[in-house]
Amino acid sequence: MPKPPLNNRAQVRRTMGTTEVSILVFFAVVIVALIVISVLFSVEGESELAFHPMDQFMIKPLFGEYGDPVYWYTVTNLTFWMALAVLCVVLMFVLGTRGRAIVPGRSQSVAELTYGFVFKMVEDVTGKEAVKFFPYIFTLFLFILFANFVALIPTSASPTSQITVTAFLALAVFLTVTVVGFVKNGMKFLGLFWVSSAPLALRPILAIIELISYFVRPVSHSIRLAGNIMAGHAVIKVFAGFAAITAIAPVSVLAITAIFGLEVLVAFIQAYVFTILTCVYLKDALHPSH
């Protein structure tokens, strides 16, 4: 019975659209090319696996010799990518809104949507009287968002993967929240730790737990962002390390592609989460009663 398989195959071919076929062909070509390239370049020998997933987070001077000392004012690779993030903000919010059109164009409406997104978040989560903190929160959001996104460019150094950077951001939020809380509410701000809805016997224990969780906030706030970005980049680097083995290289490239897609998502979500947590903490400072 030689006929049924043939028929089947014809049927399969018919049910697959031209798009799927071209995608398959594209991937086949890419994989073959990768194998060829990796075979050609592995002639140099030294196919031992060398993982340095953390090297991408090193600070290097942008100008001058590699290995030059890094002083506090030295222009480093981190400076460059931060500047790129600032440039993105300028492009989006200064050049994009240049027209001040009543009926916005494409770039202007992106800027307005971002503005509206964060503004609504601040208003919904924190309340109307927190609108005066909006520029501060918006600055944090835009810096983290664009730093995350420019860090997705290959060979970049990502500012938000540096625990120092995120710790500074989180500590700034923590200090702002604490200062605002005490200035606005005075000693009543300590009511945040005194859960008046709980039974009296439990309140001291709850107060200790609340106090600990209050001081852990900047830690989790900063480590969450840095950890997510660092983990994603390190995983990509590890998969890239596997690409040194010819047989695994195609799988490794596909895995990098998949992780990259995930990282695009994470880049936005972490900026969003950092901002919304800032709003939540600020709400505690403005309305400390439980």
């Binding site: 919904d124 989560v125 989790s220 969450r224 950890g227 983990a231 979500i269 989460v273 919304i276």
Partner: peptide
């Protein structure tokens, strides 16, 4: 949706601590 993300963030925080411990041990 905002509550969802806050909840996810809090749930994730403790996992991040574990990840941090792992990193510290490694490096």
């Amino acid at each position: 949706t905002a509550t969802l993300f806050i909840g996810i963030a809090f749930a994730e925080a403790l996992g991040i601590f574990a990840f941090l411990v792992s990193l510290l041990l490694m490096f």
